[in-house]
Amino acid sequence: MAFSDADLVAAARRGRDSAFEQLAVRHSQALRSFLRRICRDHAQADDTAQDALIRAWQRLDQLKDPSAFRSWLFGIAWRLASETRRAAGRRQQRESDWSDAQAQARPEGISPEEAMALERAITELTADQRACIALCLAGSWSHAEAAEVLDMPVGTIKSHIKRGRAKLLAALGGDA
C-alpha cells in the first residue's frame, strides 16, 4: 500500500525516520532534475538537492499543509539554489575586483606575464620567507617591525629576505 505524502509527513513528524526517507526517495529524482536545469552543474544540483532535503527534515514541523510536501520541498530547493547563485556572483565580483586591484597595483613596466611569473615564484618560497618579503619588501615595514609581528629575531628576518629575494631573482632570471 502506497502512503500519501501527507501520511508520510505525519509519520515523520511522529519520529518515524523511515517515513521521511520514503518522501526523500519519492521526490529526489524530480528534485535533482529540476535543480540540474536551474544550476546547469550536476554536482551543484545534487549538493543543493541534498541540502534541501536536510533543511526539509529539520523544518518539517513548519510545513502547514502536509499534502503540499512536494511543492514545499521544491520551494526550499529553489531558494537554496538562488542563494548559491547569488553567493557565486558575489564571489566572482570579489575575484574580479581583486584582479583589477592587482593589475592596478602592478608597478609600471611589469607585464601581466611577469606579474604571474612573480606570483608563481613567490609560492615557491617558504612561508617565513613569504611573510618577511611581504612585510619588508612589499609592505615597506622595517626589519624591526617585521621581527616584532612575526616573533623572530631581526637577523632571521634579514636572512629570510636575502634568501627569498635571491630565489625570486633566480626564478625570474635576474641576478642576485
Rank of each mutant, 00 (worst) to 15 (best):
residue 6 A to H: 04
residue 73 L to R: 00
residue 104 Q to F: 09
residue 147 A to P: 03
residue 135 L to T: 02
residue 94 R to L: 15
residue 166 A to F: 06
residue 149 V to P: 02
residue 142 S to I: 00
residue 36 R to S: 13
residue 58 Q to F: 05
residue 115 A to G: 03
residue 6 A to V: 04
residue 66 P to Y: 05
residue 161 I to G: 02
residue 35 L to E: 03
residue 61 D to Y: 06
residue 66 P to Q: 07
residue 76 I to D: 02
residue 133 I to E: 00
residue 85 R to P: 01
residue 92 Q to M: 13
residue 148 E to N: 12
residue 38 I to W: 09
residue 64 K to R: 14
residue 96 S to M: 15
residue 142 S to W: 06
residue 22 Q to V: 09
residue 47 D to W: 04
residue 79 R to T: 11
residue 12 A to C: 04
residue 172 L to P: 06
residue 104 Q to V: 10
residue 129 Q to G: 01
residue 40 R to K: 15
residue 42 H to W: 09
residue 164 G to C: 02
residue 119 E to A: 15
residue 125 L to Q: 01
residue 54 I to Y: 09
residue 46 D to G: 08
residue 5 D to H: 05
residue 121 A to E: 04
residue 113 E to C: 06
residue 68 A to N: 11
residue 49 A to T: 04
residue 45 A to S: 06
residue 105 A to W: 06
residue 160 H to D: 02
residue 86 R to M: 09
residue 110 I to T: 12
residue 45 A to I: 00
residue 71 S to L: 08
residue 87 A to V: 08
residue 135 L to K: 03
residue 94 R to N: 08
residue 127 A to G: 04
residue 46 D to W: 07
residue 25 V to H: 11
residue 17 D to H: 10
residue 114 E to F: 09
residue 155 G to R: 14
residue 127 A to W: 01
residue 39 C to A: 15
residue 5 D to P: 03
residue 128 D to N: 08
residue 123 T to G: 10
residue 173 G to Q: 03
residue 62 Q to H: 15
residue 97 D to G: 08
residue 74 F to V: 02
